[in-house]
Write a protein that binds this DNA or RNA. Structure first.
Lengths: 134, 134
DNA sequence: CTTCATGCAAATAATTTGCAGTAAG
DNA sequence: CTTACTGCAAATTATTTGCATGAAG
């Protein structure tokens, strides 16, 4: 429920914000340009500055997350359970893999060894997806 | 031995390249601007374009790696054994943690579950370092 | 010598900002 | 009504490119 997420964070509910969230949801992992270009098709007055501003707000509100991958443009996704990104370097597809206990284990191992208080974990694996292997 | 690394990749050995590599080595994880500003102190004619071009070449040659972290400028490091980045969100410090077998385990788990052929793994943990906790 | 790298300036791309007008609550 | 959001244009920042000169092999 995007309306509620926005409301809970004192962000006004605007068609632009809902459109941005819908695009992110639809594509899973999407770049700034793609968001902008896609929305412009149905709303030609959409401004790129609005996309930037709202991505920042919604990231601060922990509604969305940025996804930074080696040799790729920044992307965005909805906040979800901790997960690993599997990235195909051939076709560019990205899938999420929830391996909660393994991630938790690794996090604890790191925390113990380093004395860091760890808040977030960011894991990506880059390779070739099953389709592209064929 | 930076000379050898360059030579092996058919890259000419220039003072600029050596200076860039020395900066990266010295700081461990360093941004493009920092490299440029630091080198300019001893070599004022150093050009930012040269930094960009060489970072690209040396990344292609697998001498250096780019390090992308949430909410941070891109950084560079020398290629080393697979490791995890521990990032302090307070003071910005980054340390490397080699947990080879755990990383290998996680990689295999992901590969099995996804059928991806995984080539690289990128792991960062964001939190507060021991010093900043005090 | 020949090839490749550098540095500069110009071009392009990415992101941010200020502000007047407009929509949300 | 009041506050916050949008869209535009301008400003800033980041990155890339072309090319003449110079250094490396």
């Amino acid at each position: 429920m995007f309306e509620k997420m926005l409301r809970d964070n004192h962000l006004k509910i605007t068609p632009q914000r809902l459109a941005i969230l819908k695009e992110i949801q639809k594509f899973g992992h999407i770049s700034i340009d793609e968001i902008y270009e896609n929305i412009k098709e149905s709303n030609p007055s959409m401004s790129l500055a609005t996309v930037y501003k709202n991505l920042t707000f919604m990231q601060e509100a922990k509604i969305i997350d940025e996804v930074k991958l080696p040799n790729q443009k920044q992307r965005y996704e909805l906040v979800k359970n901790p997960h690993i990104h599997l990235v195909c370097e051939q076709c560019g597809s990205i899938i999420d893999m929830e391996l909660e206990s393994s991630m938790q284990q690794l996090k604890e191992l790191c925390a113990d060894a380093s004395q860091f208080k760890i808040k977030e974990t960011s894991i990506a694996m880059i390779g070739i997806c099953p389709k592209c292997q064929a």
